[in-house]
């Protein structure tokens, strides 16, 4: 790997900040006009340490994408709004920063890869220009030097014949190749935190594996901290060592990947794990969590998973469980797992 040293040289090692790289505290996001607003994310807290790879898993509508957009400061507003909470990046509250400061951070310190590689690239700009722009926005660099760097980035993400492909437009690339271009663009300034929102969902299975391999490579060579959003626990287990499970806008479980697979503490997590197809028992019907995710704003009281929960007790209908520490490595928002019996 001859590329790595020159890539990491671009930015001197960040000033060492004590504590986690990212700390989200009590984050709530609302949509709609005040008064009738619907909370799509409620009281979400988690931390990500420098160098870690953390996954957020959940169904569509669980609030995982909104949480990541909030970190980027990209919640569409109106109609969206951050109602409560703090997002501390290297100890600085991003929500407290003036609006004009966020563009400096986006792309340089925190970068993001999106789900739809087909529509996430500008159709009328060459990919060389689009990657180059990411560099130009944050680093002073001559034209030729910048071009060289774009070529290096394209090599890093495995695009063949990068010198020639610089001048190509997005429509001349396949979905997998476009996602590689997106990744090249995201890591162009060697960000401290890389948020990947369902980076493989829109791709073929074989291409998915290649993109996941590329994410591993990015992590190895650039030492990037990763926040991976997915509905697929398998994808998260492949990249991350810790996983945060979200359901109906709340964090319901937070533990390291091995622990979650061995002994999930929240019944929703258990349901998710049971619904992963396995090669061994191909003849049994795949497990399905009964019922549906509640619409945002419809659960007023109690645990949001109560209507679908196989282990529910009376207390669950009355009181919403907070994220309780089950063991020092594992937290779950479940009264039953925490030992309640009635």
């Amino acid at each position: 790997m001859t590329i790595a040293p020159s890539l990491s040289r671009q930015q001197p090692a960040a000033s060492v900040h004590p504590g986690p790289l990212l700390k989200v505290e009590d984050l709530s996001i609302e949509f709609g006009p005040k008064g009738t607003a619907v909370r799509v994310v409620e009281g979400v807290s988690f931390t990500i340490d420098t160098g870690a790879a953390v996954g957020i898993v959940g169904e569509s509508g669980s609030g995982k994408s909104m949480t990541s957009l909030a970190v980027m400061g990209l919640i569409p507003s109106p109609p969206g709004r951050i109602a409560t909470g703090r997002i501390l990046f290297e100890g600085v509250d991003l929500l407290g920063l003036p609006r004009s400061r966020m563009p400096e951070i986006r792309g340089r310190d925190i970068a993001m890869i999106f789900q739809e590689p087909m529509s996430s690239l500008n159709p009328v700009m060459t990919i060389g220009d689009q990657i180059g722009e990411a560099i130009k926005l944050h680093q002073k660099m001559g034209r030729e030097e910048r071009r060289q760097r774009v070529v290096e980035l394209l090599k890093l993400v495995g695009i063949p014949d990068p010198e020639r492909r610089l001048g190509a437009y997005p429509h001349q690339f396949s979905g997998g190749m476009r996602q590689r271009v997106m990744i090249a663009m995201a890591v162009a300034c060697n960000p401290k935190l890389l948020i990947a929102d369902e980076p493989t969902t829109a791709l073929d299975v074989t291409i998915q594996a290649q993109v996941l391999e590329l994410m591993h490579k990015i992590r190895r060579t650039l030492n990037t901290t990763i926040l991976l959003i997915s509905h697929d626990l398998g994808v998260i287990a492949d990249i991350c060592e810790r996983v945060i499970v979200m359901y109906a806008g709340k964090v319901v479980e937070d533990a390291d990947v091995k622990t979650i697979f061995r002994s999930p503490k929240h019944p929703y997590t258990r349901g998710l794990l049971q619904s992963i197809p396995r090669l061994k028992d191909e003849n049994t019907r795949l497990y399905q969590i009964p019922g549906m995710v509640p619409l945002p704003g419809t659960i007023k009281q109690g645990c949001p998973f109560f209507p679908r929960c196989p282990d529910r007790i009376d207390k669950c209908a009355r009181e919403t469980p907070p994220l309780l520490e089950i063991t020092p490595q594992q937290k779950a928002a479940c009264w039953v797992s925490a030992g309640a019996t009635s």
Binding site: R106, R108, S120, N122
Partner: peptide, 12 residues
């Protein structure tokens, strides 16, 4: 989506 991408890059 590509407008969101541009913002995510840090474009003003």
């Amino acid at each position: 989506d590509y407008v969101r991408t541009a913002r995510a890059k840090g474009a003003r």
